[in-house]
Simulated scan of single mutants.
Amino acid sequence: MATDDTWIWDGGRVCLDFTNTLRRRWRAIPEETLRNSGDLVLWLQEASLLAPGTPDPADAAVLASGRRLRETIDRAVLAVADGRLPASIDVTLLNRSAAEAPQPALQIAIKDGHLEPTGTTSLATDPTVALALVAQDAVELLLSAEIRRVRVCGADQCALRFLDRSPAHNRRWCSMSRCGNRTKVRLHQARARRSERTPAD
């Protein structure tokens, strides 16, 4: 079973964090972090969508539904971010999934002199309802101006999805501390090796 430090939370939206539970999408066989329904329950709890202590349904259908929703969100978000319409079958699945739960009431707080969302009033007590909250977040993103800021990490061996909220809208990495710094170090080392092989004039 996955542990809570397995998850990466750099997507900027819960629906993008959910798509990032499938890692290394560039490989022929990507890395699956939702290996069983217990992993799905743990992720939903860590995402603050599912109440702590909610039992693992040990249900293969719930896991399959979660994975199907994840890939539907990924296809739809990448299509709309690229200026295309998502497939009608993906729209249907998103709408059906989002309708499984009522929209929770958003809460706000004053922080650093401005208003910020602080979460919702209640947590789901069923994984299917928690997945519906992920679908609702995806629908909101697809209809928002932020959809044009969805990016895929520029690191060669990453491909995580994220929302670029940088002031200049030029963020390249899912995380500077993970992919950005590693890429810069690798490029620096490659340049150093090339200069060592170049004969001096």
Score class of each variant (00 low, 15 high):
4 D>A: 12
5 D>V: 06
6 T>K: 06
7 W>A: 04
8 I>M: 14
9 W>M: 11
9 W>G: 04
11 G>M: 13
12 G>N: 14
14 V>W: 07
16 L>V: 08
17 D>C: 07
22 L>T: 13
26 W>L: 02
27 R>M: 08
28 A>P: 02
31 E>L: 11
34 L>G: 03
34 L>S: 04
35 R>P: 01
36 N>M: 00
39 D>M: 00
39 D>Y: 00
39 D>C: 02
43 W>M: 08
44 L>Q: 04
44 L>K: 10
44 L>E: 03
46 E>L: 00
46 E>Y: 00
49 L>F: 08
50 L>A: 04
51 A>G: 11
51 A>R: 15
51 A>Q: 15
52 P>W: 07
52 P>Q: 10
55 P>I: 07
55 P>D: 10
55 P>H: 10
56 D>A: 06
58 A>E: 12
59 D>E: 06
59 D>Y: 11
62 V>Q: 02
63 L>F: 03
65 S>P: 01
66 G>F: 05
68 R>H: 11
70 R>S: 09
71 E>Q: 13
73 I>W: 12
73 I>G: 03
73 I>P: 04
77 V>L: 13
77 V>D: 02
77 V>P: 03
78 L>G: 06
79 A>S: 09
79 A>W: 01
80 V>A: 13
80 V>Q: 05
83 G>D: 10
83 G>P: 07
83 G>Q: 09
83 G>K: 08
85 L>G: 14
88 S>V: 05
89 I>R: 14
89 I>V: 10
89 I>P: 00
89 I>S: 12
89 I>D: 14
90 D>A: 13
91 V>M: 13
91 V>Y: 11
92 T>I: 01
93 L>K: 05
95 N>C: 11
97 S>A: 14
99 A>E: 14
100 E>V: 04
101 A>W: 02
101 A>Q: 11
103 Q>N: 00
105 A>H: 05
106 L>D: 01
107 Q>T: 10
108 I>G: 03
108 I>T: 13
111 K>E: 13
111 K>P: 03
111 K>R: 15
114 H>V: 01
116 E>Q: 14
117 P>M: 02
118 T>W: 07
118 T>R: 15
118 T>H: 09
119 G>D: 13
119 G>L: 11
120 T>R: 14
122 S>I: 01
123 L>K: 08
127 P>Y: 09
127 P>K: 12
128 T>C: 14
128 T>Y: 02
129 V>M: 09
131 L>A: 03
131 L>I: 08
131 L>Q: 05
132 A>P: 05
133 L>W: 06
134 V>M: 08
135 A>V: 04
135 A>W: 02
136 Q>C: 09
137 D>I: 03
145 A>K: 13
149 R>A: 15
150 V>M: 07
151 R>E: 02
151 R>I: 01
152 V>L: 14
153 C>R: 03
153 C>A: 09
153 C>Q: 04
154 G>Q: 12
155 A>R: 04
160 L>I: 06
161 R>A: 01
163 L>K: 12
164 D>R: 09
165 R>F: 00
167 P>N: 12
168 A>W: 00
174 C>F: 02
175 S>E: 13
176 M>V: 00
177 S>I: 03
179 C>T: 11
179 C>I: 06
179 C>R: 09
180 G>I: 01
180 G>C: 08
182 R>Q: 12
183 T>M: 10
183 T>A: 09
188 H>F: 12
189 Q>T: 09
191 R>E: 04
194 R>V: 11
197 R>D: 09
198 T>L: 14
200 A>C: 00
200 A>I: 00
201 D>A: 15
201 D>Y: 06
